[in-house]
Write a protein that binds this DNA or RNA. Structure first.
Lengths: 348, 348
DNA sequence: GTCATCGATGTAAGCGCTTACATAGCTGGG
DNA sequence: CCCAGCTATGTAAGCGCTTACATCGATGAC
């Protein structure tokens, strides 16, 4: 009767377990942190007591004592883009296996938000940080470096970047896309792309396109460049507007697959044949892209792989190693049905 | 010269700030937690000192002292489904506004994983928990309840559930879909659905379909029921196999939009007219669905709203209120191009 | 049989912070 | 002019845990 505790409110603490198992609190701690140091019979007793009262070491206490939080942070623009969702999912899984918890922040493409989220994470004692892109307020990186915390920039891999990166060279990748289209014979090329301001990755993509065109003495005509939110609808609107210009572009490079899908759907709705009347390329190779009609030519990025690599890199840093960040990933151009050699305009 | 610290390694602590501002450590703490209690000039001095050394209260320390962690956990199956990604994104945003950090776990439809993730979160001292679905090991909920922390089940709202829920009644929703198809004149209805084992939401969906069919004395023929991973490809395969059976279904209910999109694409690839030869319905109304040709009839779920409501509910609990969980959301049937009245089989 | 040694356990000092309580100036009423 | 009653600040006791160090037996070499 008197054994019944009428107020089970307060969660058990290590001392309670210690009392129940008739050992000292230090032994309880050891059972959970270096079990080999405690004699098996006692170990069992402690384990049994802990299980009986549902006790686990409280993370805040051990974080303090151990000076390690076992949490890492992921800072991404938004989960609404499956690209970042996949990266975060892969990281979460990789870290969970090591008993590390993932803290998430979505900054919605807002640099101030990113900055303050990172500060909050630092205050929480994250031991490492993965951040999408490198166009952030300088303070953001300064804060991280001041803490001597390992971090990695993802989705970007600019030559000469001061940061460790896991990603690919956006500029190169788009140069490759543009060259492919040029090789197919296109000379008037339109571009639909996400906002470039404050987004290094997208700015690089546009630069890559310009590079390739410049190599052939070409450029992007202002009326053939649409910059706006990444969405299927923006892709649709842009292509509709662009096709009213003269000369009409014969090919369209889109900053990501959502835009490309919008462009493709609208072009077909307008009665154009793709790729004959208009070639279209995307970027990311999201799940739906290869299901389109015709299937979308795009560049394949392995987002889970980026997440896994970022996690592996940070994990390695946390073990005290100094891994050399891997070479850039090289996205592969997946030629599907929305591109093809341009029919010769005139002559046989 | 001697002012230079040669080892800036260790992050500053409150005592350092206190020393710099020539106040006691208590005052420093007060400046950050109840600023109105400290005289403005001193407050400024402390703030300046803190900023100068880049100090912020360390979360583990304050969590311990305050007995509040200011973190909450979200437990979802996977981020690869945009439905859950959207929910998490909305929650993260809502919590961040209140200075609360979100811990994420993806259990990949594995109940053991979910259980241990929840335990890890409890050990981390989460103050609240949002969990997708209610078909979890009973221990999972027992652990949470033993800690007396608020929690909410999302994406599910079964009548009579013992848990607070933010979601919709999956059974009702699919009953509605099936009834609609029946009203359109369909009698042979196929089903492609995600695995039902260990997934209450999906099991409810199937039950809802059965309910509606039973009302008209009908049922699902075994050869018209395909259960498997939710993916466009599974939708494709299933529809192909199903259309070889006799009698052929004239309508197809899919457990979510991915499956429906696969079914739609494959049906059209097989030369069927949709909806004339085969009506198709999805569920979730993901972004791409209304872009399909014909646009997909589906049920619209506001995933961000679920996330916001879940966050609001938990936030309210954390303020000590006892909010009555809101009534279920009612997903709306969005009739688009993949359904329509069945042409009369015979007679005028 | 004695003592050095070693392995198993306990003791206690923090980890960085918050906050109840103590204290010390002030203000102003009597 | 004194003191009750404030308010602004400081003191110190934890929060729950880990771990260096102390302690205590037991083991085995001599």
């Amino acid at each position: 009767m008197s054994e019944r505790e009428p107020k089970p409110k307060r969660p058990p603490r290590a001392v309670d377990v210690a009392a129940a198992a008739e050992v000292s609190i230090a032994t309880v701690s050891r059972v959970f942190n270096s079990p080999e140091k405690v004699a098996p019979p006692i170990r069992e007793r402690v384990l049994a007591a802990a299980k009986a009262m549902g006790w686990m070491p409280h993370a805040a206490g051990s974080a303090l004592a151990r000076r390690r939080s076992s949490i890492v942070g992921a800072v991404i623009p938004t989960l609404d883009n499956e690209v970042f969702a996949a990266q975060v999912g892969a990281m979460q899984t990789a870290f969970a296996e090591r008993g590390i918890t993932l803290l998430l922040s979505c900054f919605n493409y807002n640099q101030d938000q990113a900055r303050s989220d990172v500060q909050a994470m630092l205050a929480r004692g994250v031991e490492a940080l993965a951040i999408v892109g490198e166009s952030h307020k300088p303070d953001l990186f300064a804060d991280i470096q001041a803490r001597h915390i390992p971090y990695v920039v993802t989705y970007s891999h600019r030559p000469g970047s001061p940061h460790p990166c896991i990603g690919f060279d956006n500029r190169q990748a788009f140069r490759k896309i543009a060259r492919h289209l040029l090789d197919d014979g296109h000379e008037v090329i339109g571009v639909i792309i996400q906002p470039t301001t404050g987004n290094d990755r997208v700015a690089d993509r546009l630069d890559g396109i310009r590079d390739a065109l410049a190599e052939r003495g070409l450029g992007i005509r202002p009326q053939h460049l649409y910059e706006g939110e990444w969405s299927i609808d923006f892709g649709r609107q842009s292509v509709r507007a662009m096709l009213e210009t003269a000369p009409r572009p014969t090919a369209l490079i889109c900053g990501n697959d959502y835009l490309a899908i919008g462009a493709l759907l609208e072009a077909r709705a307008m009665g154009l044949a793709v790729p004959r009347d208009l070639a279209i390329t995307g970027f990311d190779d999201i799940a739906i892209s290869r299901q389109m009609d015709p299937p979308l030519t795009t560049m394949h990025i392995d987002n889970h792989e980026i997440g896994r690599r970022a996690a592996a890199y940070l994990l390695s840093c946390l073990q005290g190693e100094s891994p050399t960040p891997a070479p850039p990933l090289v996205p592969t151009l997946v030629l599907r049905g929305t591109t093809g050699a341009l029919a010769p305009a005139r002559g046989a």
